[in-house]
């Protein structure tokens, strides 16, 4: 990884929710770094804790029933220790977020021009009106909205899904944040529009030298846009690797299963698809040992480390992987399933 101080450094983050049925450990001890200008990907199935984790970085889900511990360091400052008034300054200025559904992220009662200007004015109060308008127009231009001068007076419902997502991106980037968090930004969009939006995010990242955290469940999107990937399972990090290593030599049995499932779509015609048996576990009363054990094909039985100890992240081959399998066993599995 990088030698310089990372832009964002998350250390041993835990987020739990108190519910009537017990404590839900949505994020359970996750650590990672994001460097300036880097695109980091977080992959996982629904319920793996990826969205809860990024809202914790923005401190968006801190109700009374939420327990958070650990550190979230942005340029060395712990966001979890900031008072709310200072956190408000960080949101939108240093860290901005794009949500999955652009329609619910926009207020239907205000014009898009007003909403984008608002995002700017929160952090730059008392800017002259003409100047704000120029900045908003410029922002809309950059995200590729034609005829921006006319469109700032339009309401969200007058735009298509892809255009709305562009508006949300314009709003997120108007203060040139150092970190952009995109939570499933293209899941609600069609593939042809998805390609446009991913290219847009990437070119804007390059232009501003900002870092991007892209949350997705689509391994295809990961392969195209991301440098460093974290695979999450049941609120924990299963594997952490550079994108090329993750796809060439995946170390964790869960990553291997996911990749084989996806690739069997791409390759075979009409054969049986590879799938991972079973379903993701409930996050209430997660086993202290390996969370993936009930679905794992390399599991070693009820008395082995798989069933008794929680696997820590350690270096296996080119990745960091939370698995008890020895490096030899992992490379044997990789050879069998992933050699060309």
């Amino acid at each position: 990884m990088t030698n310089a101080t990372p832009l964002l450094s998350v250390r041993d983050l835990h987020v739990s929710f108190k519910t009537n049925d017990g404590i839900v450990k949505a994020v359970d001890g996750v650590s990672f770094d994001v460097a300036n200008g880097q695109t980091m990907g977080i992959v996982g199935e629904s319920g793996s804790g990826k969205s809860v984790m990024v809202s914790a970085i923005m401190r968006l889900n801190f109700g009374t029933d939420v327990i958070v511990s650990g550190q979230i360091l942005l340029n060395g400052i712990d966001l979890l220790a900031l008072p709310e008034s200072e956190m408000r300054q960080v949101r939108g200025r240093d860290i901005a977020m794009i949500f999955q559904d652009p329609l619910s992220a926009l207020n239907p009662f205000y014009t898009v021009g007003y909403q984008i200007a608002e995002a700017y004015l929160v952090h730059h109060p008392k800017t002259p009106k003409a100047q704000v308008e120029a900045i908003v127009l410029n922002a809309l231009d950059k995200v590729g909205i034609p005829d921006a001068r006319k469109r700032i007076k339009s309401y969200p419902h007058e735009f298509s899904g892809g255009m709305r997502q562009r508006i949300v991106i314009a709003m997120a980037l108007i203060n040139k944040p150092k970190l952009l968090i995109a939570d499933e930004p293209t899941t609600a969009l069609d593939v042809t529009v998805q390609a446009q939006i991913l290219e847009l995010i990437d070119s804007l990242r390059e232009e501003n030298n900002s870092a991007v955290m892209l949350i997705t469940h689509d391994l295809g999107v990961v392969a195209e846009t991301i440098q460093q990937v974290m695979v999450m399972y049941a609120g924990r990090t299963a594997e952490y690797a550079a994108v090329q290593d993750l796809f060439d030599t995946p170390s964790h049995p869960y990553t291997q299963g996911l990749l084989r499932a996806v690739r069997s779509f791409d390759q075979s015609t009409r054969g049986s698809l590879v799938s991972i048996s079973g379903t993701p576990p409930s996050l209430i009363n997660l086993p202290e040992a390996c969370a993936f054990r009930p679905r794992c094909s390399h599991e070693k039985g009820p008395l082995s480390a798989c069933a008794t100890q929680r696997p820590e992240l350690r270096t296996i081959g080119a990745s960091q992987s939370a698995c008890h399998l020895s490096a030899d066993e992992v490379s044997r599995v990789q050879r069998e399933a992933f050699s060309k």
């Binding site: 298509s160 899904g161 892809g162 255009m163 593939v191 042809t192 529009v193 998805q194 390609a195 446009q196 991913l198 290219e199 689509d218 391994l219 295809g220 999107v221 990961v222 392969a223 195209e224 994108v243 090329q244 796809f247 990749l259 996806v262 690739r263 791409d266």
Partner: peptide, 24 residues
């Protein structure tokens, strides 16, 4: 449509012959 589908493979997939349609 076919070329817009992201391929889960960084080498072969990365934007080779990608046709990005403009507009909606």
């Amino acid at each position: 449509l076919m070329s817009a589908v992201p391929v889960a493979n960084p080498v072969s997939g990365r934007k080779i012959g990608r046709i990005v349609l403009t507009g909606d």
